[in-house]
Design a protein around this nucleic acid. Sequence first.
RNA 1: GUGGCUAUAGUACAACGGUUAGUACAUCGGGUUGUGGUCCCGAUGACCUGGGUUCGACUCCCAGUAGCCACCCCA
Length: 453
Amino acid sequence: MPRRKNIKMQKPKIKEVKEKNASILFSRLKGMKDILFDEYKYWDLVIKKATELARAYGFRRIETPVLENTKLYERSTGKGSDIVTKEMYTFIDKNGEKISLRPEATPSLVRAYIEHGMFNLPQPVKMFWLGPIFRHDKPQAGRYRQATQFDLEIFGEEAPVADVLLILLAYNFFCELQVNVQIQINSIGCEECRKEYLVKLLEFYKERGRRSKLCGDCKKRIVKNPLRLLDCKEEKCLEAREEAPQIVDYLCDSCREHFIKVLEYLDELDINYNLNPYLVRGLDYYNRTVFEIWAIEEEGGAQGKLALGGGGRYDGLVKYMGGRPTPACGFAVGIERTITKIREKNIPLKSEEGDLIFLAQLGEQARRKAFAIFEELRRAGFKVRQAFTKDSLKVQLEEANRIGAKFSLILGQKEVMDGTILFRDMDSGIQEIVNQKRIKEDIEKKLNLNKGK
RNA sequence: GUGGCUAUAGUACAACGGUUAGUACAUCGGGUUGUGGUCCCGAUGACCUGGGUUCGACUCCCAGUAGCCACCCCA
C-alpha cells in the first residue's frame, strides 16, 4: 500500500483502476475528452459547415503550431489577462525555452501574418483556422481544457464591412446549423475615447460612495481594469451599474461613425443583435467593435448566457507585435459548445452514408473469393461492407442489419462452385441467384429500382 | 481560486446494516448443421480509495480522490 502512495505523489494525474489482473490503466486527464464514434457525426457536420461557409466568404485555411513561445501570448493576449496569468499550459522545453500550448488562435495568426510577410499579399487577407486550444481552467458544462475553435481573421481592412462580414458569417453558421443565437455587440472605442470614458466611469463610481458598495473583485477592478466593472454579475454591482455612463456616448467621431455603420449593416441584413453597453471582453487587444454570440435558451432557461463565440476588432495588435500598422478583426466559435446546442435540439441527422451493400461469405474458399469481389466492388465505387473475420452467416447478417444495408450478397461454397452469388433484399428478405460476372450491373439496377420507390 | 451535488456492470438506473447486490439496454453464446430485423433461453460483467462506528458496512460518519454543476473567466 505505501508503494501506491509513492506513485500518486510523483504522478498525481495518473489514476489507478483496479482490474482482475491488477494491471494499471490510465484515465483521461481532467477536462479532456474523447470523441467517440457516435459523436463524430456532429463533428463532421459542424466542421463541414464551418469550412464550407468560410470558403464561401473568401477565407483561406491556415494552421499554426500547437506550441508557441510563451512570450507571444504574454505580449498579445496580455500579461494581465486571466488566460495568460492562470490558464496557460506553460513549460520549459529541453533547450530551456519557455513555451505554451496555444490558448487561443489570434496571436499565432498575427505572428504568421507578420512572419510570412502577408502584408505583401493583396489586402485584406482573410483566413480561417480550425483546431484545438488549451486552457487550464476548471472544467464544467461546455468548458474543457482542450477545446476546439473555429476562428476567422481579417487583416488589413479598416472598413466596418469587415466587422459585419465576420458577424454575418458567424450568424449564418449558427442559423444553418439550426442553433438559435443572438449577437451581443458593443463598441469599446479607440484608445483615445476609451481614456476619456474611463475617467467619467471612475468619477461615477466615486460619487455617492458607490465604490464602497461594490463586490471585492470589482474593488480591485476599479484600479486594474475598470472596463470590467461593467461585466460583473454580482447583484450589488449590477445595481450600481444601472446609471453608469455608457461608452457609446463617449466615442470619438470616427469610432462612432464606424460603429453606426456596423449597426446599419446588421439592421439591413436582418441579423438578430442586441446592443449591449456592458459587453467588454477579457483580452487586452480589442478596440472598437466587440461582440459575442449567445445561445438563446429554448424554454424557461433563466440564466445560461453561454457564449458560443466571440470576437472583435484589434487594430493595434499587428503593429504592437512588430508588424506594420494593420487594422484587423476576428472571431472564434467554440465547436464543442455548438455541438452541445445541436444535440440539445435533437435534430435528426441524415446519415452521410448512402446505400450500403453487405458482402457475406461462408467457408474458407468463399472467403478468399469474397475478398476479390469486395475489392472489385469497392473500386467500382459501391459502398460495400463486410465482416470477413466472422464465420457464421447469422452473425454476418446481423451485422448487415445493424449497419442498415440495403442488400446483402451471400457467397457460399455452392456459389463459388457454380460462379453465382446470392442477392438478398434486406427489407423483403427476397433472394435471387445472380451470375458473379453480372454483380455490378445487378447492384446498379437494384439500387435504381430502390430509389424509384 | 470559492461553493453545491454525486460516486453500484460498457451505459442508464435499482435495492439492502447481515448470507447468491437486482433490472433494462449493450456484448457474447444458443433455439439442429448456409440466413438478419421480432421472440425465447443462457453467459460475461459492478458496490471509487482510505479510515471510523458496529458482532457485521456496498449501505451510516469522516477524509481523500474523481465526476457533474454554479461563481470567476471564457469558446
